[in-house]
């Protein structure tokens, strides 16, 4: 083959960049910058935010809710992404402390490993608010939801639809992560109360839609007509199960419920494809965390723990939730 010149290589790269840049309706900015709003007051508060993972849809929604609330309150946010690494998260909080921010919002990666971040902030006298998940060391304030409750709601829905008797399968999140452990615990609490509901199989699909689809296809091969319901620890996996069941023409016989109420899942519930999802209130959690951080920075009183309830979403109420989730 003929040697290619450097110029043609550059052209290829340029062409690619253009193709991406003009991709229709896709170039939404992530907005990882400080929220600027209104006339700057004399002493504008600065809040450092360390998020667990900005490539997770729920965390992206949490982030947007924080930016919106910060804009309304006229405070500046410095947002960092720990990319699932608790160690990186601790470093981020250390640099917030070095910058002397007025308050810190932590969206912990892990219960144990992210705890030093809380300890360091408290030792430096900077108020720290945990949002969405917990750390072993209690922070100044906590805003979030009880993950067990989400699984309980979804499972109770399934039990009720099955009339208290039937065969189900469960898809786990990434094994060992707090959300997986708690959703598993919540689901098993409900199972323990209903001995006639039989758990045929449970496996991890690692929060991933493609893996969930393969797993569901394998379960269809193994259990076929015996399957009556699927509980998935998140919507991505729930959607994977739905697609696999639809392709096997079994969806009309199998109930699927999952957790998170991401836009795609809400649409699927609205369309009658997914039976139920559980709404976790990103706006309430993100906005509430910014509010708490501002109050603490101004040395006002603030509730130590705020639990924002989950809500079951079925076809009857999917419409109202679809409006709250900003679709692209």
């Amino acid at each position: 083959m003929k040697p290619r010149s450097k110029i043609s290589g550059t052209l290829l790269a340029l062409g690619w960049a253009v193709a991406v840049a003009v991709a229709p309706g896709c170039g939404r900015p992530t907005g990882t910058k400080t929220a600027e709003a209104g006339a700057a007051p004399a002493q504008r508060l600065t809040i450092g935010v360390s998020l667990m993972n900005l490539s997770n849809e729920f965390i992206v929604m949490l982030h947007q809710a924080m930016l919106a609330r910060a804009g309304e309150l006229g405070v500046a946010l410095i947002v960092t992404d720990a990319q699932r690494s608790a160690e990186r998260q601790v470093q981020q909080v250390e640099s917030f402390i070095a910058q002397r921010v007025d308050a810190i919002i932590l969206n912990p990666c892990e219960v144990e490993a992210s705890a030093p971040a809380v300890e360091k902030a408290l030792a430096a006298g900077i108020p720290i608010v945990n949002v969405n998940s917990e750390t072993r060391t209690p922070p100044t304030a906590f805003i979030g939801s009880r993950d067990e409750e989400s699984a309980r709601l979804a499972m109770e829905y399934i039990v009720q639809r099955l009339g208290g008797r039937g065969n189900i399968v469960m898809m786990h999140g990434f094994m060992g992560q707090a959300a997986q452990i708690k959703r598993d615990r919540g689901a098993r609490e409900v199972l323990a109360r209903h001995p006639d509901i039989k758990l045929l199989a449970d496996q991890t699909a690692e929060w991933d839609r493609a893996k969930a689809m393969s797993l569901m296809e394998n379960w269809i091969q193994a259990y076929g007509e015996k399957l009556e319901a699927v509980f998935a620890h998140n919507d991505e996996m729930g959607m994977g199960a739905v697609i696999a069941l639809e392709q096997a023409r079994l969806k009309s016989k199998v109930i699927v419920a999952s957790v998170d109420a991401i836009a795609d899942a809400l649409q699927a519930v609205q369309d009658g494809r997914l039976d139920a999802t559980v709404f976790q209130d990103a706006k309430g959690q993100g906005g509430g965390a910014v509010e708490a951080a501002v109050r603490l920075a101004r040395q006002e009183t603030c509730a130590k723990e705020v639990f924002i309830p989950f809500q079951l979403v079925t076809r009857t109420n999917a419409g109202q939730f679809l409006q709250t989730v900003s679709r692209p």
Partner: peptide, 13 residues
């Protein structure tokens, strides 16, 4: 790049 193009959310519909 995948995250930038998609804004961190799945591209559906």
């Amino acid at each position: 790049l995948a995250l930038v193009i998609s804004g961190g959310r799945p591209v559906s519909n």
